[in-house]
Amino acid sequence: MFSHVINAGNGAAVVVEDIRKAYGDLNAVDGVSLSVSEGEFFGILGPNGAGKTTTLEIIEGLREPDSGTVRLLGESPWPRNSALLPRIGVQLQASSFFEKLTAREQLETFASLYGVGAARAAEMLDLVGLADKADTREDKLSGGQRQRLSIACALVHDPDVLFLDEPTAALDPQARRNLWDVLRAIQERGKTILYTTHYLDEAEILCDRVAIMDRGRILAMDRPAALVRGLDAPTQVRLERGSFPRPDAEALPGADQVSEDEQSLTISTRRPADVLSALADRGALDGLQVRTATLEDVFLDLTGREYRA
């Protein structure tokens, strides 16, 4: 009734208003609202059990929320909306593949479910860098290759919105970085990407905007840089212990606080440029490390507890 009014032409791919989902006593999703613009790379972050996957599944139309509304490309995804399905691509948390089929055959089979020809399969293999693995069976691929294949399968029908649930979980650092390149390439094609992760550092690098979730609620939602800046946390300048006398450090311009442990001497400052230039003047830059606040600090600030994925 009001849907076309709410969403008409404002470029929102996803609009979620106050959705809730309870399993028994557990409020898996407890009043989540968010909106994602077309072409945006949006991350839902949080530790395991935060309600990220359930939120994603409600938006995809795999689950019915107890209350609240979801508009996906202007339509309701629940109950199963066949008109919407060709416009969304979903990579599931488990790698859902057909048994005993090669990478190419998996893609061709999924393509045919959308009435898409086999030519797209080759294109997708190229996109995710699996062209040389086309004839390898899915169970013979490495974890990273399987994830990339699974993303290719989600993309094979050229959807407008792509949902990725923990695509980088359980991957080694090299495979994660390979996947980042793939994700960036997909975004460059103008796709809207919604993805969940429990790697905050990764979300900071990839996402246009993030929502930090914990215990079924969104605690904060903004651009990663804005969230970190909003913390107004001091910069930490770390020196090797013994390389610089502590009283001198305390006397540096801009140094707010100085602490020491077995390995290092740490200077907290809100004027890092002053501290660093003073240290440079004294020739004390060897082995120096500068650490600014990250999303993990944002999480700590929001929840009062250390972030544990």
Partner: peptide, 10 residues
């Protein structure tokens, strides 16, 4: 293996 679920999304 959630293939059914994946098919249902098509």
């Amino acid at each position: 293996k959630q293939v059914l679920r994946r098919i249902r999304l098509a």
